[in-house]
Computed example of a mutant assay.
Amino acid sequence: MGVRVFAGCLFNKGEGADALRNICSNQLHVLQLDVRDPDQVDAAFNAVVEKLNDYELWGLVNNAGICFIGNSEMISRDDSLKIMDVNFRGPYLMCTKFLPLLRRSQGRIVNVSSNAGLAPVPLMALYCSSKSALFMYTEVLRAENECFGIKVSAVIPSGYKTGIIAYDKARMAEKWWAEAPEIVKEDFGKKSFLIKSKATDSDEMLSTDISPVINAMIDGLLSTQPKPIYYKGFLARSIPFIYSHLPSPLREPVVGILTDWFEFQPICLQDIE
């Protein structure tokens, strides 16, 4: 589209970064960027400023995200904090660092949250919490920066096959089991640490076409009147709407059915049965 793009990559010499370089023009600049690391955020800022004329940065897109599936007592402390760091602390560090440039251009911020940040999903406590924090942070940023002419949007995707939960679940289950307190091991049992989807064809339910999300980012960056919130994909709007608007006696069972995605059978409940 003729736009100069600075792409932050966790490994700027990795396969993903090389793929970007191969498919894009020389308008793309790949930056080394772990959004959890303030020093790398500062270095990315300096690299961007060095290539800009008069600090003219137009937009910032925060898209980094990770997710681990498991009961909130089960996921190890370091992996739990990693989810919060990547999904919320990272966008916070990026926004606070780059906002002075966006003020000068009256530019844009686009933050990618999730419908899981607007309604609770069992076994995704840290992911839901981090995306909820990001969504509210985005809402506050919009209110704070309207006076400067900065427009801020949230993208709420759902049902896309991005690979965010395609990690080695068996390896992570072994790691979490090894680090779990003995009382948690006693209550849960080792088998419950390996989370499985209830849908045998769960991958088939996810769309491989992520263009609606990309188009939402583009609209948030380039439209004269970007939307405050872009809902994209399966259940992106419906689950949050039901959670927010149904009366409590109906809300919990309905949302419970719509978000009953994973198997979890701790041995302490099996003993009761």
Rank of each mutant, 00 (worst) to 15 (best):
G149N: 07
M84I: 00
Q40E: 13
N46M: 08
T259Q: 07
L123Y: 13
Y230I: 08
D79R: 10
E186V: 05
L99Q: 11
F6M: 10
S244V: 03
V41P: 00
L99V: 10
R103E: 15
F262M: 11
H245P: 04
G233N: 09
K227I: 03
A216P: 06
V121R: 03
Q270L: 15
V48I: 13
C95G: 04
G59Q: 02
Q27V: 02
V112Q: 10
I66M: 07
G8F: 05
Q225I: 03
D168K: 02
Q225E: 11
I83L: 00
L206W: 00
Y230R: 11
C147L: 11
L141P: 05
T162V: 06
L10I: 04
I229V: 15
I214H: 09
T208D: 14
G256I: 06
I75W: 00
E204G: 09
S25E: 08
M124I: 03
G117M: 08
G2N: 07
Q32H: 12
G233F: 05
L269I: 06
S80V: 01
K151L: 09
C268S: 09
E139T: 07
G159M: 09
M136P: 01
K196V: 03
V121P: 02
E204S: 14
K131Q: 09
A199D: 13
E273N: 07
D271V: 10
S129A: 15
P181Y: 08
V184P: 04
V110C: 08
I83P: 00
I210N: 03
V255C: 13
Y92Q: 02
Y92N: 00
S114M: 08
M1W: 03
D85H: 05
P266F: 05
G16W: 02
F241I: 04
D209S: 06
S72Q: 08
D85T: 01
L221I: 13
Q265H: 10
L141I: 06
V48A: 05
T259L: 09
E146D: 13
L93C: 07
W176Y: 10
D271W: 04
N46E: 15
A47D: 11
R36K: 12
A173G: 05
I165M: 12
N71D: 15
Q270A: 14
N63L: 07
P226V: 06
A166V: 00
V5W: 06
G159P: 06
T138S: 15
P266H: 10
E273Y: 12
E144N: 11
I23L: 12
S129P: 08
F88N: 01
R142K: 10
K82D: 00
R36N: 13
S153W: 05
E146A: 09
R89H: 03
I109W: 11
D209P: 04
I75A: 00
D260G: 08
A47M: 08
L235R: 14
A178I: 01
L258R: 04
L10D: 02
L81Y: 01
S130I: 00
M172E: 12
P249W: 12
G256W: 08
K161G: 11
S207A: 08
K191N: 13
P240W: 09
S72T: 05
E186N: 11
L93M: 07
R251G: 10
Q27P: 02
S244G: 14
F68V: 01
A173W: 04
D42I: 02
A180H: 02
L258H: 06
S211M: 11
T200G: 15
